[in-house]
Nucleic acid binder design. Structure first.
Lengths: 331, 331
DNA sequence: CACCGAAATGAGAACGTTCTCAACAGGAGG
DNA sequence: CCTCCTGTTGAGAACGTTCTCATTTCGGTG
């Protein structure tokens, strides 16, 4: 029912080629023609059909933002939202649209890879299957991996300095005089876990402190798990005086346990988080945390993806965005 | 470069029509043919081209989820995330993909409406321009409006019972013995504001309480604004003993001000929020709030939209999802 | 006024599917 | 053995653009 370029062409007396040009390369069309064409288009309520355009151009100007389903209870947790937001902003600037998908949208129940839609590029964030990525790249679809590292020829991975971030957090606690420092480690991807874990360990070691295995709990990265873990720490006969949590949500849960136990933060227990997600400012006292610049991550991922789409492969295959310790009142 | 249906047809010796059928209506193709076709497809790495399919079918199996840019500082705030999640889940079930967009993606800087992409349907959430909706519907694209009401012929609007929710919140505070009840009203769309506002007023009136204008503050719906507003309330010589906040984020901000002032929640100041967003469980004590079933909202919006797309218009034009008061420890 | 080059326009193939319609194969029934 | 019906298959148009190449128009120059 919608009017097509041919209707417009008929109405204004030009050929469809010229009408097409009026939209895609207006400089090559005379003023007179443009006036007539736009007028005709307006009266016919014409909008160029993106599908037909994509068909011939072999380019949809769509990208996909793919999150792994198991990433978190809520698909769009406070961590990924700002990243998606940055990706959307950057995409809008470049006239791209973005699909938000789960790994499931790209993988059949039987495990087979199946890419439903044509897209010019894909950003995976967090966990991602090498098989899916491989399949995508076989089809010459550019891929950028965010917040994760996979060893694939020429695959651009953007991460943050998890290790250095953890070091700065623990160092900070040490400097504030803490000697019994716990670790609530959320379960993320192996890379992330190991790096943050190692940062904690190395810092203790460098400061001549012994890591107390009873102070170290590996848990799901949820509010509830953080709360539960902290209550366990609080029950120890010699409890830690500070904990480093590997994300803000866990830290918020930990704070709740402390407050419920009638203890003071940071006097009785200092808490440091990781991410600087929106959660860190919701809690009272506000959370000291290791800031990840999610806006930059998202923007960079989008930029690099667009470069790839436009055929400008970047030489670099790893980008590590520095973290920054944000000291607030919880420590 | 990617292989097409013709390559597969050549390789397996069947016509492209039969190959096409093997994917779209497998029941009409013999077992032998299917075996050969799938084998050929696999060896050629063939995937049906969604663009070409959309071209002839006049159907993309894409929908758009459009949020107004000014809705909040973060595009994907804790309120909209669960809704989007539900929409995505429902879409996946029906084999649709979802674009996440801003109003800007659909509106030129000069205010003109411009729908970049072909989509089978659109869900607007929150603020939405009647002009854009009108334009979409002119083009026979089904639209569902979420969390807002617009008076347009046959437009399906899904909202929650803001009024009843507000009543239940204030009623609850009254029953707990509060007589000086403040209102921190975030600025949302007129409908929402008015309904929640009115619920507050009517309840006070019904209970024979006088609304004290000094207890009523209209503010931006942000954490900071909530905090700032509460500190103002705390400075009053006769301060309220409870506040009803028209969203959880504002409530969280208010709680922070209370705690900072060294007062106790709920003993010195009870706080009730609205939404039951993720924030309500992050704060300590956990927030009493009016629950909106966002999962149901999202699911319903998607379901109704798919019905419309499939040509089954629903008779109803307004759906109001009931709220539920969730009593936690902040009141 | 003829000529030239540049700018503007037009004709028509191509993009990769689906779908309609027709043709064909093969088995059942007379 | 012929006819009819059903289940499979194939040919080719159609979907709405863009893009290449050829043609026309036009303004300026000698």
């Amino acid at each position: 029912m919608a009017s097509t370029i041919i209707d417009v062409a008929k109405k204004c007396g030009y050929s469809k080629a010229t009408v097409s040009r009026a939209y895609t390369e207006p400089d090559c069309v005379s003023e007179k023609a443009k006036r007539k064409i736009y007028a005709a288009a307006k009266s016919l309520n014409y909008t160029p059909n993106a599908i037909a355009r994509a068909m011939v151009r072999q380019r949809t100007e769509n990208i996909a933002f793919i999150i792994h389903e198991k990433q978190s209870p809520a698909i769009l947790n406070p961590f990924y939202s700002p990243i998606l937001e940055a990706v959307m902003r950057e995409s809008a600037r470049r006239n791209y649209s973005v699909f938000v998908m789960t790994n499931q949208d790209v993988q059949l129940p039987n495990g087979e890879v199946y890419i439903k839609k044509q897209m010019d590029g894909v950003i995976f964030v967090g966990e991602a299957s090498p098989e899916v990525i491989g399949r995508l790249r076989e089809q010459k679809i550019p891929v950028v991996l965010l917040n994760n590292v996979l060893d694939m020829e020429g695959l651009l991975c953007i991460t943050t300095s998890h290790y250095e971030g953890a070091v700065s957090a623990v160092e900070h606690l040490y400097e504030r005089g803490h000697r019994r420092i716990g670790l609530l480690a959320g379960r993320f991807s192996p890379q992330v876990n190991e790096a943050r874990y190692q940062g904690y360990f190395d810092t203790l070691a460098r400061r001549g402190l012994e890591a107390n295995p009873r102070y170290i709990l590996e848990i799901e990265p949820t509010l509830e798990a953080g709360e539960e873990a902290m209550s366990r720490l609080l029950k120890l006969e010699e409890r830690p005086t500070a904990v480093f949590c590997t994300n803000d949500t866990v830290a918020a849960g930990a704070m709740k346990a402390v407050i419920r136990a009638g203890l003071r933060i940071p006097k009785d227990m200092a808490v440091v988080g990781f991410d600087d997600s929106s959660v860190s400012r919701v809690v009272e006292p506000e959370l000291t945390t290791v800031r990840i610049d999610m806006d930059q991550m998202g923007r960079l991922a989008a930029e690099k993806l667009f470069d790839l789409i436009e055929g400008n492969p970047s030489a670099e295959t790893r980008i590590e965005i520095p973290t920054e310790l944000i000291v607030r009142r919880s420590s």
